[in-house]
Design a protein around this nucleic acid. Structure first.
Lengths: 355, 355
DNA sequence: TTGTAGGCGTTATCAC
DNA sequence: GTGATAACGCCTACAA
């Protein structure tokens, strides 16, 4: 797109010279000292005179780029952040990953990855990333994994950001989602559409997040005057099957006005169940998911969901890392309600959906 | 898990000393020269005598680990491989990522990530990863993106592996999937279960892979004596909605014995459609997906799918990278058929499904 | 403003 | 087999 491969614009497209050039070569070609090259290329020089131009052109011509290893050896950062996630197949992790990579690229640093689904594996990944001298570490702990021991051990040396509402130490930063506000948005939305009774399919019982969400939901239901039933509030896996099973059981004898799911996959299972029961969303039941999985948009009907602000999470994490290890802080962000057909039907969808 | 945070086993658990120790400290503590430390720790030494033990213990005690920046500056590789993917929310990319990270960790190197959904973005990521001196580059091109220009420019300097069946150059390696064998497995499986007529929901028309799969399918159908119809063979998106729409259209007037989908999301859409049409899988229609998305296992019925050998892909890619840039080769791997309820029903599932 | 020189932590090359 | 020492490429006081 940028360059034609076979456009011999000059001799510049030479794949010839064996190893990469160093700052010395650039200095020689521009007839200046390596110090000057360093200053020009790192922007620590005001004027844009002939020298600066010569240096830049020489660098361009030699296809030169700074050797990060040498640079970071000297003292500056590695322009590298570590990210530890349970798995890339986790929808939340995947979206976070995409957002973080993009944000990191903007500050021209890069993402070094660690994947581990258990406390032991994640701990090992944290160790190896830190031994790589990453400038900072962003950790999305696996469900139920308490990484405070290992993170605390390193919190003083390197900035660490934990994503999510799990247990954390006061020694490192945390970026989390405001569950109360999240639930308020959902319940408000449902109430404004006339819902009176609400079922809730929660996440795994052991999870800190599940418990918090569950509590916040009931706070909001009370505050908006909506009702629920014990039998409609159960913990379970975040799978399509679970949503299907739950919905089949509930709708066999009851009919809540709305169903809130802890995850979009669950919501999709509910949709399948509704299909086979001859019920429709949103006419018969309104449905809300969470996490903005790609399948939400393409489901039929498309699923109203709560989208975590991945870009913000990424930006804030990098900002906290840039602050260094001595200012641990706690940031709480707000998810955005993406309104789709499963609560408002086909007609009004496009108008309401923001973004 | 490995260590108790608050077990004062000695003074060793000291989070005190400000910056990390260097090889000099280890040498001093072990009363040997830094050269010896280097040799012992890098395994370039035969004997396991007292000296070796002393060095290792000193390293352990100081919580020392080699500085990768310095190490790679001196000449050895960076023990880092670059991975470029279109997005982590792509199921294939996510599973590849997980497998690669694990395989890389086994050879104690790490994955530096580049995410980009367009040719331009991917090109930029390739550039920055290479300027980071990665030991090798693994690229999963975005759909329809031909990265040969940029990859070719660097193929001589650094080993490059392209994943997938897209266009490539003879100057770098490729790891791809054997589509013919894949289709043979699927069609064989369906034929052995008595299917006579088969519908196929292909991928995007522009995609090289789609075209190849389409061709291979027809080869295999012919070879097994199965039949299809032009109206049952259409290109389209890899979305749940697409599967739903396609199925509704087809089953409105026809009833093939089996449906093969280019992706599990599409298959899921088909399941939803079947539900609402009152049809069942596999009794009324057999259904096969591709890519082993997590939702396959938890769908109802669970979906028979073709699982790309992610671990093998990762291993082969790293092996090719280890060989260096001068031996570009082409490796073709075989997907594995994961048999689930959507073709064989509930009874026999567990017996047949291999791992 | 520019150049010179020293040092970051390692590994490779020499002498011993 | 071991130890001193010279690179590796870069940045940054310090001197000019």
């Amino acid at each position: 797109m940028v360059r034609q491969a076979n456009a011999p614009s000059r001799a510049s497209t030479s794949p010839s010279s064996s190893s990469a050039h160093s700052i010395t070569d650039v200095a020689a070609l521009a007839s200046v000292s390596i110090a000057t090259v360093s200053r020009v290329l790192s922007g620590k020089r005001q004027k844009d005179d002939d020298i600066a131009r010569r240096v830049r052109q020489a660098a361009e011509q030699l296809n030169y780029s700074v050797n990060v290893a040498a640079s970071s050896l000297r003292g500056a950062g590695t322009r590298t952040v570590g990210l530890v996630i349970p798995s890339a197949t986790d929808e939340f992790a995947a979206q976070l990953l995409d957002a973080l990579e993009s944000a990191a690229d903007d500050r021209d640093s890069q993402v070094l990855l660690g994947v581990g689904g258990t406390k032991a594996l994640q701990t090992a990944r944290v160790e190896s990333l830190i031994s790589r001298n990453v400038d900072g570490l962003i950790v999305l702990p696996a469900t139920g994994a308490d990484l405070t021991p290992i993170l605390e051990r390193h919190a003083g040396r390197i900035p660490i950001v934990q994503i999510g509402n799990g247990r954390r130490s006061r020694n490192y930063s945390q970026v989390s989602l405001d569950e109360l506000l999240a639930m308020e948005q959902i319940v408000d939305h449902l109430a404004s559409l006339g819902a009176k009774t609400v079922a809730y399919m929660a996440g795994r019982k052991v999870s800190f997040e599940s418990a918090e969400q569950f509590s916040m939901l009931h706070t909001q239901l009370r505050s908006f005057g909506l009702e629920t039933k014990a039998a409609w509030n159960q913990f379970g896996d975040q799978t399509v099957q679970r949503g299907y099973d739950c919905a089949m059981r509930i709708f066999a004898q009851d009919k809540p006005d709305a169903v809130i799911c802890c995850d979009d996959k669950v919501a999709l299972g509910v949709i399948v169940a509704l299909h086979s029961l001859g019920l429709r969303a949103p006419e018969d039941v309104m449905l809300v998911g969470q996490n903005n999985a790609p399948l939400c948009e393409t489901a039929s009907p498309s699923i109203t969901t709560l989208r975590p602000p991945f870009e913000q999470i990424a930006e804030e994490s990098l900002r906290l890392i840039a602050q260094g290890p001595n200012y641990p802080s706690e940031v709480s962000l707000t998810s955005q309600l993406i309104v789709r057909e499963s609560t408002v039907g086909t007609a009004t969808t496009r108008q309401i959906t923001a973004r």
